[in-house]
């Protein structure tokens, strides 16, 4: 019976418990305290630990799975998704294209070539990751 690292719930709050769980998990994943691929406490364990209804836990987990934050592996439990997407793939594709289009346009304005733009992207990659991690709520 491993206590969930940081998943805390206060039944007396007006916020629905499943919502509290969801928020808590998202926060833990976003802050890196829950890493991708890490196993989450079972519905049973979390319910017991927090003295809450397992159905509520199940509901929260279900929503997180649908949102792509978590994924279930049959027989093994619930895990943090490997690459928890912030948005649906279609939307992601669109935003990437928009960002890429802006970079291409900027490079054209500066008279840079495609190869220069790609080099600049590669160089900027680590900085961008760090900024994204810190900026997520």
């Amino acid at each position: 019976m491993s206590p969930a690292p940081g998943i805390r719930v206060d039944p007396t709050l007006p916020v629905p418990i499943w919502s509290q769980i969801e928020e808590s998990v998202r926060h833990l994943v976003a802050s890196g305290r829950l890493r991708p691929g890490e196993v989450l406490p079972s519905v049973r364990d979390l319910a017991r630990d927090q003295r809450i209804n397992p159905n509520t836990v199940a509901k929260a987990y279900q929503r997180l799975v649908e949102a792509g934050v978590l994924e279930t592996r049959r027989g093994e439990g619930t895990f943090v998704a490997e690459r928890p997407p912030a948005m649906p793939p279609a939307e992601r594709a669109r935003l990437l294209r928009e960002g890429a289009t802006r970079l291409a346009a900027l490079a054209a304005n500066l008279g840079a070539t495609r190869a220069e733009a790609v080099l600049a992207l590669q160089a900027a990659w680590p900085e961008g990751e760090a900024a994204a991690k810190g900026g997520r709520r």
């Binding site: 519905v43 049973r44 319910a47 209804n53």
Partner: peptide, 14 residues
């Protein structure tokens, strides 16, 4: 009290 309800929850979950 907590022990009792933990047991109930466990059974309910199972």
């Amino acid at each position: 009290r907590d022990a009792v309800f933990q047991e109930v929850i466990g059974d309910l979950a199972d």
